[in-house]
Design a protein around this nucleic acid. Structure first.
Length: 566
RNA sequence: GUCCUUGUGGCUCAGUUGGAUAGAGCAGCCGCCUCCUAAGCGGCAGGUCAGUGGUUCAAAUCCACUCAAGGACGCCA
């Protein structure tokens, strides 16, 4: 309908160009859904845009455009508003046709072909495997999974990937922490991982010697020493004294934690196609090879015993270290290799969803992509702001290291998967989010997810009670204000889904579903469906069945269930 | 100090990419179950869109500056 109208407008403009009124026709014509009934169904601002060119007032130009407009029977009337808007009123048979379209296509209604044939790599969460996921990760998980759904719905082939940081110092701290719990020392370091899950893992260790690894160790912070040095010494003792057993403990720890994370995400409806190990980049030598390549091409230089990437050549404000003077590769070195690897896998689009704290990394990652002769525009980095957690009106401080945090799993069991998925996605990602635990836990109607699901359940309930009706529906009977509002809302769905995916903004869909549910609840309270007039009943049931379908399709995209009963 | 994000009723947030009288939910007040699920509906009240200037037919939206909040700026991961 919209494209048809656009074509009619373009035709009209073209004849005006031929008549010498206009010089040229713009490529893009705005045709929006009007927000008010008095403004018709669609509105265009074209007359205002071109009035200067036509050297007349917007109103006069609008009149000329309308005069040249071919009237089809789908258009009921056309009005020119005071400012120069041209408002189109669509005939009823044409507007109700959306109902049949939705019913015909069912689950497939809303599929788009924007991304047909394009492959997307979507990386998200990628939390360090040093402990369970907490509520901050939950936001990235919900957003990423929903974005994947939207992209697939738009025709893209999407691979979701989790980058596992299973290399580096944090892994040593993890391993040492587990061992310290195993030997059950009372001298646990400040800088170790103190969560209870560490103790749980340590109980799985069997047949490894309990040694005193506190010999020749510098003081911890609480004794006036340096906590970094303290744990460094412990790690070294652990490694040298345990030998091969160290690796055993390491493997045990990471296996457990990863299994936990996978299960957690899976229960949250978040599935990955790939889990990419950082260690594999070191093992395969790819990391080393790339550094050599970059060194050969002059992008990496040596200073004070360390290797530096000249990211300033590509817009970064400082050069960055890739290999420390002790020979250890930095996290950044792995990241370069990882991203190169991603590019070489041949995706059309690479999307990273990062926590807002990684903001400083964008410039340097894009820099090395340029240095490696790839197109940095292929990589899109989306930042998700932190979710602050509030309990009893107070912000909860969280730290993985100290073990004081609310896990994603705790949140899920407290508020339920549906509410959690929806709540997370209800905010724009670049918006700081206050997650009020008490509010989310209180199962009242303050949570909009119940409102939407309730609308769906109500429709199911009505349809279940409806007896078989052989009467054919006559959609022209759907002419009261509630019905027209609902029909209009349904006709917005395609556009909503399109906007949500193009902008990577699932919240657009979330808000739409709430609006749709509102129109339905209003209809429900004002009109009866199961009535004596079987003809009208059949028509109304068609309308709410279409509504049910859209609610279902939309909720599915958001990863939320559409219950038949509540 | 440099960079990023944000600033919209008492609270939490939308605002279809520059459009028509700035919208929801919660909290407040007043109404609606003999009826398909009251987890619902209807109504009232509540705003100088942080501020100033600019761009144009039109600015919450774009530009500049100011103010305020949060974050990022390691040979950490």
């Amino acid at each position: 309908m919209k494209t048809k109208l656009k074509q009619l407008i373009i035709n009209s403009l073209n004849t005006l160009v031929a008549d010498g009124v206009l010089k040229s026709v713009p490529e893009n014509i705005r045709l929006d859904h009007a927000k008010d009934d008095t403004q018709g169904d669609f509105a265009t601002n074209i007359a205002m845009l071109l009035s200067k060119q036509a050297k007349c007032t917007p109103q006069d130009l609008a009149k000329k455009i309308v005069a040249k407009l071919e009237i089809t029977d789908e258009i009921e009337k056309i009005e020119i508003a005071g400012h120069g808007f041209i408002n189109f009123f669509i005939s009823q048979t044409s507007s109700t046709s959306i109902i049949n379209k939705i019913l015909d296509q069912g689950k497939n209604y809303g599929l788009l072909n924007i991304g047909t044939g394009q492959r997307v790599l979507l990386e998200f969460v990628s939390a360090n495997p040093t402990g369970p996921l907490h509520v901050g990760h939950g936001r990235g998980a919900a957003y990423g999974a929903t974005l994947a759904n939207l992209l697939r719905n738009a025709g893209f082939t999407v691979d979701c990937e989790y980058y596992v940081n299973d290399a580096g110092r944090q892994m040593d701290i993890l391993t040492t922490s587990v061992y310290l719990r195993y030997i059950n020392t009372d001298k646990f370091p400040d800088n170790g991982y103190q969560g209870e899950y560490i103790t749980a893992i340590s109980k799985q260790i069997k047949g490894i010697k309990k040694l005193n690894i506190f010999t020749n160790v510098s003081k911890d912070a609480k004794d006036g020493g340096d906590k970094e040095k303290h744990i460094e010494d412990l790690i070294n003792n652990c490694k040298t004294q345990l030998g091969d057993d160290y690796k055993t403990i390491f493997n045990l720890a990471i296996k457990h934690i990863l299994a936990d994370i996978k299960q957690d995400l899976s229960e949250f409806g978040v599935e990955y196609q790939q889990w990419f190990s950082e260690q594999s980049l070191l093992d395969s030598g790819l990391s080393k090879k790339i550094i050599a390549t970059l060194q050969a091409s002059g992008h990496i230089y040596e200073k004070q015993g360390a290797l530096w990437f000249k990211t300033t050549d590509f817009g970064d404000d400082l050069d960055r270290v890739v290999v420390r003077d002790n020979g250890v590769h930095t996290y950044f070195a792995s990241d370069i290799a990882y991203h190169l690897e991603k590019f070489e896998r041949g995706y059309d689009k690479i999307i990273n969803i990062w926590g807002a704290d990684h903001h400083g990394y964008i410039a340097r990652i894009k820099a090395c992509i340029k240095a490696l002769n790839h197109n940095p525009d292929k990589l899109e980095i989306l930042l998700v702001q932190f979710a602050n957690l509030y309990r009893s009106g107070k912000k909860i401080a969280m730290s993985t290291r100290s073990g004081s945090f609310v896990t994603l799993q705790q949140l899920r069991t407290e508020v339920g998967n549906d509410a959690a998925r929806f709540f997370y996605v209800l905010r724009k990602v670049d918006q700081h989010m206050d997650f009020d635990l008490d509010l989310a836990k209180s199962k009242t109607n303050e949570n909009p997810i119940f409102y939407i699901q309730y609308a769906h359940a109500r429709i199911c309930s009505v349809l279940a009670k409806a007896q078989d009706n052989t009467q054919a529906p006559d959609l022209t009977l759907l002419n009261n204000a509630h019905e027209q509002a609902l029909i209009k809302q349904l006709s917005r769905y395609l556009n909503i889904v399109k906007n949500a995916v193009l902008n990577y903004e699932p919240h657009i869909l979330a808000y739409y579903l709430r609006d749709l549910a509102k129109d339905f609840h209003s209809y429900y309270n004002n009109c009866e469906f199961l009535i004596a007039d079987k003809n009208l009943q059949a028509s109304r049931l068609q309308l709410i069945t279409a509504t049910q379908q859209i609610l279902q399709n939309g909720l599915t995209l958001l990863g939320v269930s559409a219950p038949e009963k509540m």
